[in-house]
Design a protein around this nucleic acid. Structure first.
Length: 597
RNA sequence: GGGGGCGUAGUUAAGUUUUGGUUAUAACGCCGGCCUGUCACGCCGGAGGCCGCGGGUUCGAGUCCCGUCGUCCCCGCCA
């Protein structure tokens, strides 16, 4: 039975008002319900479901042929929209008040038995590897499909917001030059230039700066970036950034304009979103109060430094031995009224959390029975806490009965980071995070440099980041003190974006390269093109790159960025569907001048 | 580079220790039959297994040991 293949409606839109209309529908078989002389098929497309009814009363073909139809076949049907009897309405379905009584139909495509159920409402999910192998089927499933659709909506909203603010979408090359300063790169051999290699960009950083030199004030690009590093739940070898750059701006303007763009995009993405100014915090404040450069502001559990005087002479070695002059400190986190939620074994687990995060160890105090007498408390410290110390601690931390105090001791930065990790762990454990809440935060004034384990200076962000004008004086004497005009955008404890003002003076840029101990030849070979460009009239400029995958992940309520990428890689960087990467035949490698053992 | 979890019908899991032992269990799916108001339809019947792979211990291994592969999570790494 053949009829013209032109859909009259999508599968979410038929209503009682369409009753009596002759319609042509197409889609996948979501489910077949065979009642003998009556067969129902739910037909599905990306918009929704519509129930088809097949009966001998109106069907012009044998009903037996319908019984051969299986899940996920692709059908085209013609029929009449009919109201369902009052007691047969399905209120779970937007189209649940009607059905289509099929007169003729055709099979557009059959499907083999599926590796996992796809139908709406199917509650068994296959393993990640099975789903990845059949990603195109997984994408038909509602939660997965919805996440991708949310991402599509987000991208559209971001693009609209950027366009509304006069940003220009300009593409930059993917075949780029190797600049092995930061992450490891993906390398692309050149066939035409023997033994020469392109690299795939870790970000379009230098090209967007060159676009500013070129005069394209307000550039953006929603662009793939590549890093050949090990993967995580929130890290893929190729990922997408919303890359932005503006000219003739100071840092305040960058933050203001980007914040406006993000707010505008969020409002289009979710009309219920109520814009509130993003919080601001310096890196120093973030580290000191939260032990993190990307604090989750949805809950408290702030870090508090404890004066070493309180424990002087207490008899407990670990606390007595702290030497502030050597950069050591005691930090505490108070968890309010949750003593009953922690057993001795729980504390041991938490100790492990702190150690994994690089902390030296963890001490705890369960404040119970009385506020005045530590002998009633539960703590490895209790016999070292005399009345005066109890009083000091109670006052410092405003202790109440039922509170739990966590203490960690050691080198300042390590200890803060370890307690920062504990803070995140505690919040999850005590369920302090409201999934509906969005806490946006700008973190500013990062250090310009960080030292690696050998003490060698490296760029904290990247070497094109502008140093704070007040701190340039420290270049020769104390480079660790130099703050950068850098900013990170944080949402609920996740780094969503990072950016900075850039250096637009060749001499200052040279100074930074020199501080990073690049020789004059290296500077010239790697970044000569940049220094040359900066000499030809470069406006002050700055920008940001926003991690689209992570943002889409958070806004769609997922916990892995794989959920918002149509075809993600596995944890090992492979593709189970296509089996990439592969080896290559010797003759191909020869063309590319590559020898393999 | 290091640590950990998992791997059993098409799929998801139970069984793996304390205890190695007859025919490896269930649900969903699949196949066949019945049913004109279902919508996770129902009822009856059936098929389906290299227990990831290789080696070892043992009379005997899904179960114990060694190795290996795959996948997930974490640390390192991610200027």
């Amino acid at each position: 039975m053949k009829f013209p293949l032109a859909r009259t409606h999508r599968l979410h839109e038929l209503r009682p008002s369409h009753c009596g209309q002759r319609v042509t529908l197409m889609g996948w078989v979501n489910r077949v319900r065979d009642l003998g002389k009556l067969v129902f098929i739910d037909l599905r497309d990306r918009w929704g479901l519509t129930q088809l009814a097949f009966t001998t009363d109106v069907l012009v073909t044998p009903l037996a042929e319908v019984l051969a139809v299986r899940d996920e076949w692709v059908l085209a049907v013609q029929g009449e929209v009919a109201a369902r009897p009052q007691e047969m309405l399905n209120h779970k379905l937007p189209t649940g008040e009607i059905e289509v009584q099929v007169t003729q139909w055709q099979v557009l495509s059959t499907a083999e038995v599926l590796p996992f159920p796809i139908a709406e409402g199917a509650n068994i999910t296959a393993s990640d590897s099975t789903r990845s192998t059949y990603r195109y089927l997984d994408l038909r499933r509602s939660p997965v499909k919805d996440s991708i659709l949310q991402r599509v909506k987000l991208v559209r909203a971001i693009r609209n917001a950027l366009e509304a603010h006069d940003f220009l979408d300009i593409e930059t090359p993917l075949l780029y030059k190797s600049t092995p300063e930061g992450a490891r790169e993906f390398i692309v051999p050149s066939r035409i230039q023997p033994q020469h290699f392109y690299a795939l960009p870790q970000s379009p950083q230098l090209f967007k700066q060159l676009l500013m030199v070129a005069g394209f004030d307000r550039y953006y690009q929603i662009v793939k970036c590549f890093r050949d590093e090990d993967l995580r739940a929130d890290r893929q070898p190729e990922f997408t950034q919303v890359d932005c750059e503006l000219s003739f701006v100071d840092q305040e303007q960058v933050l203001t304009i980007i914040e406006q763009v993000v707010q505008l995009a969020l409002q289009e993405f979710n009309p219920d979103y109520e814009p509130r100014p993003f919080a601001r915090m310096t890196y120093a404040e973030a580290m000191d109060n939260y032990g993190s450069d990307k604090p989750d502001m949805r809950y408290g559990l702030k870090l508090q430094q404890v004066d070493t005087e309180i424990f002087a002479g207490c008899g407990f070695q670990v606390l007595e031995d702290v030497v502030p002059a050597d950069g050591e400190a005691i930090y505490a986190i108070k968890a309010t009224n949750c003593g009953d939620k922690f057993s001795r074994r729980d504390f041991e687990q938490l100790q492990e959390v702190v150690r994994t995060a690089g902390g030296a160890g963890l001490l705890w105090i369960k404040v119970q029975q009385t506020l005045d007498d530590a002998s009633a408390w539960q703590s490895p410290l209790k016999k070292y806490l005399d009345a005066a110390r109890v009083q000091n601690l109670t006052k410092l931390l405003s202790l109440q009965l039922g509170d739990v105090v966590f203490l960690s001791v050691g080198e300042r930065q390590r200890t803060r980071l370890a307690l920062g990790a504990l803070r995140v762990h505690l919040a999850e454990r005590l369920q302090l995070c409201d999934d509906q809440q969005q806490c946006w935060l700008w973190v500013t004034d990062f250090p310009l440099f960080v030292r690696d384990r050998e003490g060698k200076l490296g760029a904290a962000h990247h070497p094109f980041t502008r140093p704070h004008a007040d701190d340039v004086q420290y270049f020769g004497s104390a480079p660790d003190k130099i703050r950068a005009c850098a900013h990170d955008l944080v949402l609920n404890g996740v780094e969503i974006g990072g950016g900075s003002l850039r250096i637009h003076e060749p001499e200052l840029q040279r100074q930074v390269f020199a501080a990073l101990q690049l020789s004059a030849q290296e500077i010239d070979r790697k970044f000569g093109f940049l220094l040359r460009a900066l000499r030809y009239g470069t406006p002050p400029h700055g920008g940001i790159a926003i991690g689209l995958d992570r943002l889409a992940m958070l806004l769609s309520g997922n916990s892995s960025i794989r959920d918002v990428i149509a075809f993600p890689k596995t944890h090992q960087g492979t593709c189970l569907m296509t089996a990439a990467p592969t080896t290559l035949p010797a003759e191909v490698l020869r063309d590319y001048h590559i020898k393999v053992d």
